[in-house]
């Protein structure tokens, strides 16, 4: 992890419509600090289609084109092509979608854009459910979680979709995970992405205190624990999906501390929490194994 200096310039203003402690809002603030004023956003249906502010106001100092739920990546592809044909090759087009718009309804357009290696940054701010519509499960919702469509008697039984693996399979030049609890790392990754041509995918872990039944002041702490408990590894995948680089330089914290702090997991028995701990460990080992495998592929940058 190479921390960046925190830029002082702000591209997000007060007057936005986010809930207290909203991770998605912090994510946007940091991402724009990294990318700067020559950024044009494409936002599909998600919390950010509301957070932006009501027509005709906006809380961002950069342009936004709002688009349909499943259309972030394809709209961004077109916007980038249009800007280039207008002679503007400098503007960074940033597709900014939630987990529903990325893992679920938008995955087709995203897969298409990535396969074409469109020259865009696609960012998923992941709050692990359909929060804008009032906390319904998505394929990014973790095992064990309560949502309004996975009530405690029938909580989410399937694991979170492995989006990074899916994106790595598209052989795109840059993939990274980031967390609002590690803003300097997040900024460093966006800055790195800014220098690369082609499709860049950044997955930001962005807690939702409202949807997770969590006190707003614990938002950043939860984002931090998601990383240190190894639930959400901070990593980069470069060399067109082949080279995995995982951040390991931290003191691990217990998975159950993370689980027990959140109302959405309150119904889980000790046995069920133990099951989650086992899954977390397996997934962590899988990610490390990918990193080790990268080292055996000839011709990759060390």
């Amino acid at each position: 992890m190479k921390p960046a200096k925190m830029p002082t310039e702000e591209f997000m203003t007060s007057g936005h419509l986010a809930c207290q402690g909203c991770g998605a809002t912090q994510a946007m603030r940091f991402a724009l600090k990294a990318l700067g004023p020559k950024t044009a956003l494409v936002i599909p249906a998600c919390c950010w289609s509301v957070i932006d502010g009501p027509f005709p106001h906006t809380s961002l100092k950069v342009p936004i084109f709002h688009t349909a739920f499943e259309a972030a990546a394809s709209t961004a592809s077109g916007l980038k092509a249009g800007l280039e044909m207008r002679g503007d090759t400098e503007t960074i087009v940033l597709a900014w979608a939630g987990d529903g718009g990325t893992f679920d309804i938008g995955i087709q357009a995203l897969s298409g854009a990535a396969e074409r290696n469109e020259n865009i940054i696609y960012c998923c701010y992941d709050n692990e459910a359909y929060m804008n519509t009032g906390i319904q499960r998505s394929s990014a919702t973790p095992v064990g979680a309560w949502t309004t469509t996975t009530p405690t008697a029938h909580y989410k039984k399937r694991p979170k979709k492995k989006m990074i693996d899916i994106m790595a399979a598209h052989s795109i030049p840059y993939i990274a995970t980031a967390s609002v609890a590690f803003p300097q790392d997040l900024i460093a990754k966006f800055r790195k992405a800014r220098q690369i041509q082609g499709t860049r995918f950044i997955h930001i872990f962005a807690p939702c205190p409202t949807g997770w039944k969590l006190a707003p002041e614990l938002s950043v702490s939860m984002a931090s624990q998601a990383v240190t408990s190894r639930i959400f590894p901070l990593l980069e995948v470069t060399e067109n999906g082949l080279k995995w680089n995982v951040w390991k330089d931290f003191e691990p914290t217990p998975v159950q501390d993370y689980i027990k702090a959140q109302g959405r997991f309150r119904h889980l028995s000790d046995e069920e929490v133990a099951g989650i701990e086992k899954d977390v460990e397996r997934n962590w080992q899988e990610v490390l194994a990918r990193e080790k495998l990268s080292a055996t592929i000839p011709g990759l940058d060390p």
């Binding site: 494409v42 084109f65 688009t67 349909a68 499943e70 259309a71 990546a73 394809s74 709209t75 961004a76 592809s77 077109g78 916007l79 980038k80 092509a81 249009g82 800007l83 044909m85 207008r86 503007d88 087709q108 357009a109 298409g112």
Partner: peptide
């Protein structure tokens, strides 16, 4: 769906 949204994006660029 993506064809028309791409064209929407391009047209939005002017």
């Amino acid at each position: 769906h993506s064809a028309l949204t791409a064209v929407v994006g391009a047209s939005a660029a002017g």
